[in-house]
């Protein structure tokens, strides 16, 4: 198992991508895709990435749903800011430091993708020595509330999934 399929999840994803790109489930293409997935898995052993396991798929699904909702909400919020529909309130943007408990590399990578792909927030830097994350926020009303949002909505679930 480990010799033949060193990264089973990655190989499965490669096979799925192959079938999507070819738009078919014909046996011939499945065979070809399986070959590509196997070779891809072997090729990746040369890079020796840390292994990922699908722990707690329920938590991962919940996180995905949350991110989807937040992306839709913040799309609307940023759209209103751009079009000047957010009233006469003075908008302030700025950088915030947020202390994190998350240390896992993959968890941090997932958090970076989540924060950056939500419009209105942007990952700037993570300081591993102090464990603080710096983000840039387009509409900064309350620093504490942003820190609570990031920690409460994403970090707890990511901790559950990755640590």
């Amino acid at each position: 198992m480990t010799r033949l399929l060193p990264y089973p999840l990655l190989s499965a994803a490669l096979l799925l991508l192959w079938l999507l790109a070819n738009q078919t489930v014909r046996p011939g293409q499945i065979l070809l895709g399986a070959a590509v997935a196997l070779v891809g898995g072997w090729a990746l052993t040369a890079l020796q990435p840390p292994k990922a396991r699908l722990r707690r798929p329920a938590a991962a699904l919940r996180l995905g749903g949350r991110v989807l909702v937040d992306i839709i909400r913040s799309n609307i919020a940023v759209g209103r800011i751009v079009l000047g529909l957010n009233g006469r309130r003075e908008r302030r943007s700025g950088f915030i430091d947020i202390p994190l408990e998350l240390r896992d590399q993959k968890g941090l990578a997932a958090l970076a993708c989540i924060i950056t792909s939500t419009p209105g927030t942007l990952w700037v830097n993570f300081d591993p020595a102090r464990g603080t994350l710096m983000i840039h926020v387009l509409d900064l009303i309350d620093e504490e509330e942003w820190a609570r949002t990031i920690k409460g909505r994403y970090e707890t679930l990511l901790l559950e999934i990755f640590q």
Binding site: N75, V78, S93
Partner: peptide, 20 residues
């Protein structure tokens, strides 16, 4: 938003609308 927002760090947020 790329045109209207002031300053680079505000403008970086603009393309994520179309990309997400």
């Amino acid at each position: 938003g790329l045109l209207r927002l002031r300053g680079f760090y505000d403008r970086v947020h603009a393309p994520t609308l179309g990309a997400t």
